[in-house]
């Protein structure tokens, strides 16, 4: 009989340590997804040409199954195939691929009148970006980041296919040893982790975007439903 208590810190697949491994795989890709896609998305929102190039490059990357990236990344970067960095790089590519589109939409959603007004009252381009456009794009960026964090947490389990430890190990072990409860434990752990990441994101957003009113939230919800279609 599988016992969660016995396997929390002990056993061959301790849940707690696998959770830490899992977090270690997810945090960097989520951060990269945010910080890399903001300049790219801004560029895409300013120029039609940049937009079509960026969107098509990243949609091709997004088309590739995760396994392909897990294998191609080490070959291209010259890393060992069993290095967890491969999964981190691959998940980062996915995160950026999802987020570039959201961030382009976020910056496009800032009205031209507002941008012009900022320039008219004497904001420099950098001031305008950090004090006007970025805060106004915030809600849509948040919606994109929530999708990025949920899918990254779920996708990290696939790393077990190439032998990178994560909560996904509970699934393969559950199958090999015929213990359904262990797989259920793994799923619940992944869901809890996704929920925690989501709460952290929303909390950060609530602190940084205190003016986030109903209208902008509705706009954010629209972007979220669009990502489902994507």
């Amino acid at each position: 009989m599988y016992s969660i208590w016995d396997n929390f810190f002990g056993g061959s697949y301790p849940i707690w340590y696998l959770t830490l491994d899992h977090i270690g795989l997810c945090v960097i890709p989520i951060l990269v997804g945010f910080f890399v896609s903001i300049p790219l998305g801004y560029l895409a929102s300013r120029s039609r040409g940049a937009r079509s190039v960026l969107i098509s490059v990243f949609s091709i990357l997004y088309t590739l199954p995760s396994i392909v990236l897990f294998v191609v990344v080490p070959v291209t970067l010259g890393l060992a195939i069993l290095d967890p960095t491969n999964v981190i790089v691959a998940l980062s590519i996915y995160a950026v691929a999802i987020m570039v589109r959201s961030s382009a939409d976020a910056f496009s959603s800032v009205s031209a009148d507002v941008r012009e007004s900022a320039r008219a009252v004497g904001y420099s381009p950098a001031q305008r970006f950090f004090q006007v456009e970025l805060p106004l794009a915030g809600p849509v960026l948040l919606a994109g980041m929530r999708i990025v964090s949920v899918s990254t947490v779920s996708l990290a389990t696939v790393g077990v296919f190439i032998g990178i430890p994560s909560l996904g190990l509970l699934f393969t072990d559950a199958f090999n040893r015929q213990i359904p409860l262990e797989a259920v434990t793994g799923i619940v752990a992944v869901l809890i982790l996704a929920l925690i990441f989501d709460v952290i994101l929303s909390t950060i957003a609530r602190i940084l975007l205190p003016w986030n009113r109903r209208e902008s939230r509705r706009r954010a919800a629209r972007t979220a439903s669009k990502a489902v279609v994507m």
Binding site: S154, T157, F171, A174, Q178, A183, V184, I187, V190
Partner: peptide
């Protein structure tokens, strides 16, 4: 439909597969 799609996105496929293969 939207809520269930979002939940479905969070569930790891491998986990579901390992359970259903046993049952």
């Amino acid at each position: 439909a939207i809520v269930s799609s979002n939940i479905a996105r969070a569930i790891p496929t491998l986990g579901l597969l390992s359970i259903l293969l046993l049952y």
